[in-house]
Design a protein around this nucleic acid. Structure first.
Length: 593
RNA sequence: AGGGGAUUGGUGUAAUGGUAGCACGGAGGUUUCUGGUACCUUUAGUCAGAGUUCGAAUCUCUGAUCCCCUACCA
């Protein structure tokens, strides 16, 4: 080695490769799965059990596996791991496939099912018995558990471990034929009852389960266990890189053992995929455990699995999230073996970034208060209506402008007016002047209150020289008048009354349930505020040409100065409903905390 | 007789024996007809201790902390 430090290569913009990409890179280079350099051999899969709904954590797994297949020009399978009929339903198959489609993960060919491979798995199991690598154990579940030992004490062999091969074969065949009751016996791999890896202490391969299966009906009376089935499913499909989460690290030796066991004394070995584990996603202020989500739904703490506050894919879709935002978020998260906890604000940031660029702007007043322009009739008709050109999206010139009505009576946001405002309040108050966005400048000279002191009406004068919201001409001394604030507004003579649903995070605690042991104790009572009195410009009722073609057909907007909203699936022309996807960043209220 | 993983600013993530970088957040500022956006400046880090080496986030050892594993669930 040289004594002088070597010159480091100049900084390149080479994209950083995560550890799984690096493994695949070197596999392609070495030709591990085909001829060296052939990238198209890469094959990955997403293998959900159809027993529940997908959440953001699944989106990470999907984008990792799908992303690898896509970037290498390989293939990606969607396979349902339907090996436990008592928990699985066709309904979940449909919802999961729908979620993948929405996320934009396109699987190759037909949807695959583990249950399609049950015959082959059975034959291979029989071969293992013949090789004296598996046996039928008629011990009770309790006996099996107690003989397994513990992490610190080795297990003890079952008396059935040494029974004749022919006997096991006969019993296994009878198991398949449905001759035994549930739980009466199992097929076990003969590995090592003293292994420090508990998974290797003669794991169960098949259990008796006289239950109908959502796809195979009543043909089977035995069902394979995950460890036996999963590697075989991957093998049958020719998966090269079987990506899963960290808790399966201890299962990898078993994954490999089963395939090697099948391949011993076999002329044509079956395909042997490589299992690679990565850290699953965790996020602050939420919990992705199936149990927690079920308790939220079944306890009516949310309206359903697609409640916009849920961490599910369906919930995010209804909330107005875009598939792109979720994909962007997942790529921010990265791929490592470190159990990181992502802050939810990063997900909120991802949807803001996307919607800021794409969402058309509209004006909507959530908590309306009447503003009357007292000099509107001066020199003309008081009922006069003017059309204002309003910009559709300042981030996108091609979105153009739209025409919005402006007249004597308007709605403005209640929080945009204060009777006795602090100095830094750049909005409306007595004797203050503001700009109404793309409208006119108005100055407040009076206001009315009800008996409780709540402001009911604001009286203003407008400056005809500020039409369109533009600066008035300079005065005699050449000075230009300025305003600090610009408010959104809706013309009271022509607007839509709508319901808006304002969502906030479901839990108040960073780790729900950590303090008391019950996540329901950390529920945020204000996670949903329904506002039925919002006023929105009428253009919102029908799709206009400036609205982008959202891939899922959901209409999304930015309500100026308020946040991002989408049309809820319950919305109708007569009763419009909008969901708040995210607020805008608000440095004013933050400053006042 | 336990085993398997992990640990880099507040957070997430690069650096694969040779300049600890990026993003988000925080702070300050510029622009702005959204207190949005954009832009600029700034802030802050290798779990600890030994060892190998000219040189260690990276290799070795010891320790600490966290996660996973004892379903006929996946």
């Amino acid at each position: 080695m040289s004594n002088t430090p070597t010159e480091r290569a100049p900084e390149t913009d080479k994209p950083q490769r995560h550890f799984i990409q690096q493994i695949v890179d070197s596999d392609i280079e070495s030709g591990k799965w085909g001829s060296p350099g052939d990238r198209s051999v890469v094959k990955t899969r997403f293998p959900p059990e159809p027993n529940g709904y997908l959440h953001i954590g699944h989106a990470k797994a999907i984008h990792i596996s799908y992303g690898i297949a896509q970037e290498f020009g390989g293939t990606f399978n969607l396979r349902f791991d339907d090996t436990n009929p008592v928990k699985e339903e066709t309904h979940y198959v449909e919802s999961i496939a729908g979620d993948l489609e929405w996320l934009g993960a396109k699987w190759d060919g037909e949807i695959k099912y583990a249950s399609d491979y049950f015959d082959r798995m059975y034959e291979w199991a029989m071969e293992l018995i013949e090789k004296d690598l598996a046996y039928v154990d008629e011990s009770t579940p309790e006996e099996i558990r107690s003989m397994r030992g513990s992490v610190e004490v080795p297990g003890t062999p079952s008396p059935y471990r040494v029974r004749p091969i022919e006997e096991s074969k006969a019993q296994f065949a009878r198991m398949k034929n449905g001759e035994f009751p549930d739980g009466s016996m199992v097929l076990r791999a003969k590995i090592d009852m003293a292994s420090p890896n508990m998974n290797l202490r003669d794991p169960v391969m098949y259990r008796v389960l006289n239950a109908p299966h959502h796809r195979t009906g009543s043909t089977w009376h035995i069902y394979p266990m995950y460890d036996w089935a999963h590697g075989l499913e991957d093998s049958i499909e020719g998966i090269t890189h079987s990506l899963c989460s960290l808790e399966f690290e201890d299962h990898r030796p078993l994954y490999d053992w089963f395939i090697n066991a099948i391949n011993t004394e076999r002329d044509e070995p079956i395909h042997h995929p490589q299992q690679i584990e990565f850290a699953r996603l965790a996020m602050s202020y939420t919990n992705m455990s199936k149990r927690y989500m079920r308790e939220l739904v079944e306890g009516d703490h949310v309206s359903g699995w697609d409640d916009p506050r849920m961490i599910t894919i369906a919930g995010h879709r209804r909330r107005g999230y875009t598939p792109k935002a979720i994909k962007d978020f997942v790529s921010i998260v990265g791929v490592t073996k470190f159990n990181a906890v992502m802050d939810v604000s990063r997900l909120e940031g991802a949807i803001r970034d996307d919607l800021n660029k794409r969402a058309p702007r509209r004006m909507a007043v959530l908590d309306p208060i009447k503003l009357v322009i007292t000099n509107w009739g001066d020199g003309g008709d008081e009922s006069r209506v003017e059309m204002m050109d309003v910009i559709n999206n300042p981030e996108d010139d091609s979105a153009g402008k739209r025409s919005v009505k402006f007249g004597k009576e308007l709605w403005i946001e209640r929080e945009d007016f204060m009777i006795d405002p602090p100095k830094k309040f750049f909005r409306l108050g007595p004797d203050r002047e503001v700009r109404l966005r793309c409208g006119y400048w108005v100055r407040c000279h009076d206001y009315e209150t009800d008996s409780d002191g709540n402001v009911t009406t604001i009286h203003c004068t407008y400056d005809p020289e500020t039409k369109g919201g533009n600066n008035p001409p300079p005065d005699e001394e050449g000075k230009v008048r300025k305003v600090k604030g610009t408010l959104h507004w809706v013309y009271a003579g022509d607007c839509v009354n709508a319901e808006v649903r304002l969502f906030d995070r479901l839990y108040n605690a960073e780790k729900p349930g950590k303090a008391t042991g019950n996540h329901l104790d950390d529920l945020n009572p204000d996670s949903l505020v329904i506002n039925t009195n919002a006023k929105i410009e009428t253009s919102i009722l029908e799709r206009t040409p400036d609205e982008p073609d959202w891939v899922d057909g959901i209409r999304r907007f930015q309500f100026e100065r308020i946040g991002y909203f989408c049309v809820d699936r319950e919305s109708t022309i007569d009763a419009p409903v909008f969901n708040r996807t995210a607020t805008l960043k608000d440095s004013w209220s933050k400053q006042n905390r």
